[in-house]
Amino acid sequence: MKILVAIDVHETRTKPAARAAIRFAQDVVQKTSGSFSIALVGNRINEAVAAVNGFGAEAIYLLDDPQLAGHLAQPTTTALVHLQRQHNFNLLVAPDSTTARDYLPRLAGVLSAGMCRGVCEAVTRPEGLCYKRNVFSGMVTRWERITSPLQIVSVEATAVGEPRKGTDAEAIPLKLNLPSDARTTFIETRRAHSQRPDLAVAECVVGAGRGIKSAEAMSKVEELTDKLGAALGATRAVVDAGWMPNEYQIGQTGKSIAPKLYLAIGISGAVQHVAGIRAARTIVAVNKDAEAPLLRVADIAVIGDLGKIVPRMLELL
């Protein structure tokens, strides 16, 4: 298999999930023989080369263009189509993220390729590679196979390990001169800068649920988060209520996490939420309801009022 790993670079940095995409490509190379290359996509991306080098890629292509700064689906697709026409890869891999969910299916549409999103694992079977995905709120596992000449997959980072060390590769800049497409204008990105670790890679995550009913209780939960050096996440109910921004949402329609410790505070454990926390090593439920569905997946539980439990934890830590 000739594989390309496409990695989006934001402000000179790659996201942690990029490492999982590289590991996934390494695993497929091991199973099928062949090789993989990397494409870095963005604007002013030279500094990001170091982050993806030393893993045994054949080459690192730099798709560097002012049009790619905002990671809009149209120019990103055009750039990757250009690279694909030159090299005819059999498999295109990208880390699953809102960026990939936006442009990767567009690329698949333009190239008439089959795509699987959020793949956890690949195995070789007589009929070819099979990709494992979680479907139906993570309640069912499905193995899928792509039959088109070009296969496209995005990788679920929480299911894949760290890349293995390998040789360095040469960075090859490509002259793209992408035309500007006046039909889509990037205006701005609004983000709340947080000192806390990134949800996607945090070793410890505190999850806030609707059981936290007051601003005071919420500030205690935030205090606990910071004391633990944890990332903060939330259920959809909390985000819908406007207590926290959308990027904090964990679950089927939000982010997946894989911390060593997940402290779920005032969270009932709806399947859509649990879909995002299955990869957590230890799940702790703090809930007043001994029947809450979360207790079916939790490892440790305290049944009681979070209004008393959280402040007491703060005293003890």
């Binding site: 996201k15 809102t98 006046a182 609004r190 709340a192």
Partner: peptide
Amino acid sequence: RETDDGIDVLRVT
């Protein structure tokens, strides 16, 4: 649009 990092604002024709 809701992204992993926050909100992106775009104008499309």
